[in-house]
């Protein structure tokens, strides 16, 4: 091949020699690249992109489960599904529950994660990996196994929770049976289950906080709290943003905890938006479920943008 290229280049005289080989290898490169991209692209197109587009389409139609064999027989209903959602008392309840879960759960999870990371980063020198493993175990555990155990721990009479509360003379509530306590119980469960992920990311972020800064500030008489506020926290801002965004995205979709623990009850007190969407899917209201899933998507996008604004700009 090199020989032919040279000969051609020579025969064309004036043309700069590197041009032709470059284009030829560019073509080869492009072909190889697409060959590498092909398996992913096909699977991605079929199992991710197509469902995303179809879901959007469905959300503007009255598709129900029986329409699946004749997908072109469904009627366009415009924004009806979306307006219906905002007039649906149950959907609004689920939105309120989700907001409650996110507004309490995210700060709580972040605080637990940061506290654990700070303690493991600078506070101790021994057994670090043992503590880390302990804090991380809930993250890698199946939610089903978690539910089996937690349902028992949260039992009103002889569950571990109320037994411990009893030591301090507190008469613990019927956690999962009382509409006022079911959500706090799930928030506790979710924070326990998720703070390990944030902890690991904070630990990585803390490595970028130089110890020398702390020493300098200590010489100037700054105490631990002041050093945390004025050195660690500002330097940790990008990590904080990342953890808070990913946690919020996860919590806005919260589904598994109520699904395995309470089925949304009692009295819809733990019904989340994702869970209500799933229920509508179960009832065969595909168009309506798709519309609600896009509402969740928009909420996620807005909350994410908001966090970028808040955590990035002001200092």
């Amino acid at each position: 091949m090199t020989a032919t290229t040279t000969r051609r280049a020579a025969s064309q005289g004036a043309e700069p020699p590197p041009r032709r080989p470059a284009r030829k290898s560019g073509l080869r490169e492009g072909r190889a690249a697409w060959l590498l991209a092909l398996p992913f692209s096909l699977l991605f197109l079929t199992f991710t992109l197509w469902p995303v587009v179809q879901s959007l389409f469905m959300s503007f139609t009255d598709t129900r489960s029986r329409d699946l064999r004749t997908p072109f027989a469904v009627a366009f209903v415009g924004l009806d599904n979306f307006t219906r959602a905002f007039g649906d008392a149950k959907f609004l309840t689920s939105a309120g529950n989700t907001a409650y879960f996110v507004l309490v759960g995210v700060p709580l999870t972040l605080t637990m994660a940061l506290a654990a990371a700070l303690a493991l980063d600078k506070g101790i020198t021994k057994f670090r990996s043992v503590f880390r493993l302990g804090f991380y175990t809930p993250v890698i555990t199946s939610i089903v196994a978690v539910a089996v155990v937690w349902r028992f721990l949260l039992q009103p009479d002889y569950g571990l929770f109320n037994t411990v509360l009893g030591w301090f003379g507190i008469d613990g509530p019927n956690w999962l049976g009382d509409p006022n306590w079911s959500m706090p119980a799930l928030i506790m469960l979710a924070s326990w289950r998720n703070f390990g992920t944030g902890m690991i990311i904070f630990l990585a972020g803390l490595q970028s906080v130089p110890w020398s800064l702390h020493e300098a500030a200590a010489i100037d008489g700054a105490n631990a709290l002041q050093r945390f506020r004025h050195i660690t926290l500002p330097l940790l801002r990008p990590t904080l943003l990342f953890v808070s965004v990913t946690t919020a995205i996860g919590y806005l979709q919260f589904f598994e905890e109520p699904f395995v623990m309470t089925r949304g009850g009692p009295l819809d007190s733990t019904l989340s938006m994702s869970m209500y969407t799933y229920q509508q899917f179960g009832f065969g209201n595909y168009g309506y479920a798709a519309a609600m899933s896009y509402i969740i998507f928009v909420v996620i996008a807005v909350v994410t943008a908001l966090q970028f604004r808040l955590l990035r700009e002001n200092t």
Binding site: T48, Q253, S293
Partner: peptide
């Protein structure tokens, strides 16, 4: 396109994926 789908929640694709 691949990056854009990173932010799409699982419930969005659930129904059509099941149908598919």
């Amino acid at each position: 396109v691949v990056m854009a789908t990173l932010m799409i929640p699982g419930v969005v694709t659930f129904v059509p994926l099941f149908v598919l």
